[in-house]
Design a protein around this nucleic acid. Sequence first.
DNA 1: ATGTCC
Length: 498
Amino acid sequence: MNTPFTATTNHAISHMNVGDGIEPITVIGTEDIRNGFDPTCLEQARNSRLAPGVSHLVLNPDAHGGYGAPIGCVLASPTHIYPGPVGVDIKCSMSLLQMDIPEEELRNKSVRRAIINAICERTPTGAGKGQRSVRKSRRVSRALGKQVALEGASFGVCDQLGIPPDWATKCEDAFHVGFDGTAGTLGERLDVLLASGLFPTFESKVEQLGSYGGGNHFGECEIVRIAEGAREQAVAETFGLMDRRAAFLSHCGSRGFGFQLANHQFNTLQTQFAAKGWAYPGNDKELVYAELGTNEANDYICDMSLGANFATVNHLLINALVLEAFQEVLPGTTGHLVYFISHNIARKEQVGNQEMWVHRKGATRAFPAQHEGLLNTPFYETGHPILLPGNPQDGSAVMVANPDAVQSLYSVNHGAGRAMGRRAAMRTLNQSDVDASFDTKDILTNCRTYPLDEAPAAYKDFSEVLRSVEEAGLATQVAKLKARFVIKDSDKSLRGAA
DNA sequence: ATGTCC
């Protein structure tokens, strides 16, 4: 059978040619992974590579079809910005909170159940849900909501929300700025958006700070297992990981605020393309773009930054609320943020000797030790933590990048990646089997019935994805995370129940 | 991902 991939000297890295004289797509993945990519994913990768101004494209082992571009790709351009390869959930991210609770203390189911309830009283799940829908809600004023969008995790914002201010130093980016590199243009843009009526009730978006949302978003209590090996253990110590103690992994983004910003951008840019009769890359309107320096690009960069700042504070607030919940059940518990890192964002980075917008869509930044992007961070000597959710039954991973990550635009995957669509999962998987699989492994959830489209079986084999990254030489596992309970959106969830 | 059709 014909394969679109050509071999390199590393069996987990191959190339996909898209035309003569065009640098091919870099594909990360073992043969099993390469043969598993869906046709939509490969077509989107080709369209993205051939799109105007795009100079590099990397396809990750967890890739599958997305909005215009694959979920699980990295796209770099020195001249253009692409909203699709950032995604609808601007700055969807992972964060990890390490606590000092020994694993023995979580053996007791009733202790875990009490913590689940304490968390669900503070951090709501589900579409449209915000602080109004939980008992122990945090009130955030409209004025503070604006400050959040403009400043991200600034000292003032953290102080007002009860977020330890040093957590801002454990963020990939604690804040994002406007197209000119200042927060000034961000403020002007937010005023324009608020006056335009895009947010009839800005308050309804602000009150979603400290909430998970739905879909693949989750919170998960983990037991940390640090890898063997001198380098791994030294890195784990720098990361602040604690072996055989509880940690909390969170996955969520910018909620309705980011969605609305992204959606408005797609509509605005597609209207402009239609009015001017411009062609879409690959005839796919989801791959709409703006050339840097235009008003359209400037507006997009501002809107992305506003959404990104919201997502950052959303994550930090969730972590503060989750720590509070653990402390309510287990008084004296201490915790610190290990890291907060996105997998849906565009950042300005050096690629070779050129500055580019690196778009990571379902891809995680992976800067190794001594990368200049880590100067003045706690991770310059080690590389930063890479937080990768697998699935609650097979575990998740913390990794650190190797110098070879240069081959993938200093990026790795963002998780396992979907193996089947939501509809197929709902049709194929059996509810009682899925629920029983959690019982068997003694993993509690807040759901009466686990959402089938989110069952581990709906995702790719995480170990094969990790093997791809490791054998490609991009990154090394520092710790494994084993789930003890999961917080997910479910129609029948036990939100805040006693 | 998303008040699951802004």
